[in-house]
Amino acid sequence: MQNNLIVSPTALTFAIILVAVALAINFKEHIGLEKDVLVGVIRAVIQLTVVGYVLTYIIKVDRVWLTLLMVAIIMLNAAWNARGRANGIPHAFVISLAAIATATILTLLLLVGAHAIAFVPSQVVPITGMIASNVMVATGLCYRSLNTSFHDQRQAVLERLALGADLKQASIVIVRTAIRTGMAPTVDSAKTVGLVSLPGMMSGLIFAGVDPTKAIMYQIMVTFMLLGATSLGSVIACYAAYPQFYNHDLQLR
């Protein structure tokens, strides 16, 4: 089983050819992402190497506090990244952290409580990463949708306010659209899972030699988990973010 998993440094070096392909396309088509591709590659190598060693250590020592610390670091990082997509929405870091932490912790508690996973670092840390990253993407999409809609539908929002609507009544159409946008990738991937993509966790288990019929059980769990987490995260992020578009006098900023 282990033989299937060996990626030698030589093999990785050859994989750099694929990066060269991406760079060549960038140059040829004048896309202008060369710098981002290079930064992305260098960051991926450094971050993954560090995480590899950190995870090895955490799994080896198997301490609850260390596992929880890792969970906290993942959530803080995810919130920081989501904040970057808020494009000026006030308190975006706190809102993102509330959305990501609530969705991640609740989902983790449910999974551990239902004995779907054990509270061991080798299971809790990767699952946390999976949940937090999906909620991070969902939150970022929610922010983008809120920003676009409040800009494009400014007049309609003003009219609702002028008619005596409260902030929720003036914004609910925009909030619903943003929640839908945040959840869309997860819902779409749930619809096509297995048909279009063999997702990361399932692929990893199959790579590791686990019977595909067993691997799907985990994937089904992951699909349910991500649906719940992104819904919860999107709802929290949108409901906490939309009032930030107004001032104390219930006027659009």
Partner: peptide, 13 residues
């Protein structure tokens, strides 16, 4: 209260 006020003073665009 802004909401009460706007229901009394109605603005047409």
């Amino acid at each position: 209260d802004k909401i009460t006020y706007r229901r009394e003073v109605s603005y047409c665009f």
